[in-house]
Design a protein around this nucleic acid. Sequence first.
DNA 1: CTGAACTGTATGCGGGGTACACAGTTATCG
DNA 2: CGATAACTGTGTACCCCGCATACAGTTCAG
Lengths: 274, 274
Amino acid sequence: MAESERPPLSGQKPAAEPADTSPRAALPPGLDLLWGRREAGSRGPRRGLSVSDVVAAAIRVADTEGLETLSMARVAKELGFTTMSLYRYVTSKEELLQLMWNDSAQGAGELILEGETWRERLRSWAIIQRRLIDQHPWITRMPMAAPPLAPNSLAFVEKGLEALDGSGLADADKLRVIGLLSSYTLSEARMADDAARAAAEAAQAGGDAKATWTYEALLRELADADRFPRLHRLAWNAEVGDAPSGYDEWLEFLFGVDRILDGVQALIEEVKDE
Amino acid sequence: MAESERPPLSGQKPAAEPADTSPRAALPPGLDLLWGRREAGSRGPRRGLSVSDVVAAAIRVADTEGLETLSMARVAKELGFTTMSLYRYVTSKEELLQLMWNDSAQGAGELILEGETWRERLRSWAIIQRRLIDQHPWITRMPMAAPPLAPNSLAFVEKGLEALDGSGLADADKLRVIGLLSSYTLSEARMADDAARAAAEAAQAGGDAKATWTYEALLRELADADRFPRLHRLAWNAEVGDAPSGYDEWLEFLFGVDRILDGVQALIEEVKDE
DNA sequence: CTGAACTGTATGCGGGGTACACAGTTATCG
DNA sequence: CGATAACTGTGTACCCCGCATACAGTTCAG
């Protein structure tokens, strides 16, 4: 099913293997563009677009209309070009998605983590990540089918490792901690976006007065006291916990981050004792 | 864009508002079937299928061929019916996905958590969740666009809360802890599946000897010492950390779980002191 | 100057989800 | 006991999607 060989970009003729000018080996498809290892020839007409143009347009569409409605045709229309013209810049939609994902983490390598202690630094790292995601919520809907290898992703991971400098953790443990925090952050951002979408949809369909359900109301309707006693209690306790005005997603997020940081601290102390 | 009103299931005639036999209010579309509040009429020919048949077939397809190739037509073929016949049981593909997701957590309400302490119980809860996901890896690829309200999801959350009985945590904090652990577990399962897929793909394309890249090899190629010093060190340290034979995903997962549990423990002790 | 390399375009294919009209089946009601 | 309304599965059709391919026009290398 999978083509075993494919010409780099041109669909015209196989184009004799380029002389591998760079000392670097050929990367698997998709990663070459990401790492700037795919050059456009110098012949032919001037290009009317650039890869960044395409990516920027795609991000614009995703930001304003959501990832579901993002299609090649939609991006092309945004740019005033034909659908197929995009394939001169990008080999597939999946590659475009990868580029978008990488682009949304632009500047990850340059950011400066404030804080004297690893804990402060790591906390602000997590917060920055969350902010980045919130700016492009479609990130949480991306069908990422491979471990992150985009340059900005790696840069961000590197920053996370940097935050743990001097913590005394083993390198591998640092990486695990980074992965743990990232997982949580991504997931939390997604749930926040879920809620926002549900709310938006409910607001739009406000015409049907009885058809609007808040999450809370649904939980009260569904979590009956017999099968779900604990959830039932939770659903009916309006001012639950210590959050006074109901439910603040951001506080929720910080709670999780601080719990994780506590866990990391425990690990560090454990290591220190040995 | 959104239909403001839609007949329950039949596409034929509007079918005068049913007399709301149950005392429960009408649920938003999608949730009614999930909670067994959509009844099939008694007239007409016998049904050749049942909702569970459809869901089971869909799960079968997803398990063996992946979520990408799951289409209505594929499920119908699996059952020996026409594509459109499925719409007599399910209003949309999205609903089918919700049902699959709910079905994969079957038995969540009946499972028994072993352990005397909250920590043992919560740990085994997380492990069970991970196992559940690993049995149906497509769960990690599901486009879930709403907070979890399926009965089995709620049952599983309830179980998690139950694990925290006697921990002394506030209800809201318990829920947060549950969310934290779930986030991590889902994300970790997804990354494991990513890796497995990448490996499978590499193995299949083994013909191109130089085209096979392991994640490690790629990291070594890409994480140059200048821009990514810490990642570079990590990539080139083969026997990193304490895992002897390279990289054991399961140990990785348990590491994260134990870190989170440490964090929870810290919180509990903090609360206890007040 | 010629031809190779490249550009954007137009067309078409296979596949997806699902609206809709239809013929056949069954329980209910007059 | 019909008649009718509710329901079943089917076939067709529509629109959208990603992308292969063929093409005409443009630019640079030799």
